[in-house]
């Protein structure tokens, strides 16, 4: 059996271009979802640490529920519930129903799930900041807000980075789940390419290699970022 390399050519009839386009939308969705997740996580962590009892309990429910239910189930639930809620809201304000664009729906769904995980990572990182540094900031007369922007958050970042790097890798791989709901990203493009060409083995290996390359590049970037943020800290082991 010979290997039909020309099926991977970048222009049709090759499917290489489709795979690369899929990779591009995977990266887009992952980036957007990661940033959304970080924003939710930052808010969630601060809420869990400083919020009142109601906020704290509801955040606890959010993180526990999201982390106990499979991502695939959450993605389906959030996708239907999200579009439903949006359309109900639009209709009640007298607008027409809309179809949410795949890219934004993917970002919102994955971001909402990742938010629960980032909340926990960031909460742990906040708790790791030495008490003395916060007290020193207060002794300088900084307000709560200023001491957080200037001292606590920058000091928390090096503790958070290993966990956040892990989350980024999980996010990129979670985007593949969107293929099940029918968003066109790398996994779905591959499935279509494989189905059309019948070269199942080659197409899936190609997709796996693309994901692997994404992971390896991300790992390299994160180790550089970590080194940057750890500057001035004593070496650990």
């Amino acid at each position: 059996m010979e290997i039909p390399w020309d099926l991977l050519a970048l222009s049709p009839p090759g499917w290489g271009g489709n795979l690369l386009r899929g990779l591009a939308s995977t990266v887009q969705i992952a980036l957007g979802a990661y940033l959304l997740g970080l924003a939710i996580g930052l808010g969630g962590a601060l809420g869990k640490l400083y919020g009142g009892p109601v906020l704290r309990v509801s955040l606890e429910v959010y993180t526990t529920l999201i982390r106990a239910v499979p991502e695939l189930v959450l993605i389906l639930l959030l996708y239907y519930a999200g579009t439903d809620l949006l359309n109900t809201a639009l209709e009640s304000f007298g607008y027409e129903r809309v179809d949410i664009d795949g890219l934004w729906a993917g970002i919102y769904v994955i971001g909402f799930v990742q938010g629960a995980y980032s909340t926990e990572v960031l909460r742990g990182a906040f708790l790791a900041v030495p008490e003395g540094q916060i007290e020193a900031a207060r002794a300088y007369g900084m307000s709560w807000f200023k001491s957080h922007v200037r001292i606590v958050i920058p000091a928390m970042i090096p503790f958070a980075i290993p966990g956040l790097a892990n989350l980024w890798l999980i996010t990129t791989k979670d985007t593949a789940l969107l293929a099940v709901v029918g968003f066109s990203e790398l996994a779905l493009e591959t499935k279509q390419a494989a189905g059309a060409t019948k070269a199942y083995f080659m197409m899936y290996v190609a997709a796996a290699l693309l994901y692997l390359a994404l992971t390896l590049v991300s790992t390299a970037v994160f180790s550089w970022v970590e080194k940057y943020y750890r500057r001035g800290q004593p070496d650990q082991g």
Partner: peptide, 26 residues
Amino acid sequence: CTTIRGTPLLIQLWLIYYGVGSLFPF
């Protein structure tokens, strides 16, 4: 370990079921 951890499980699953599975009949 790097390969398994660097690729989505969904792709691994499809690679093994559709990919490897499609080679067996040969």
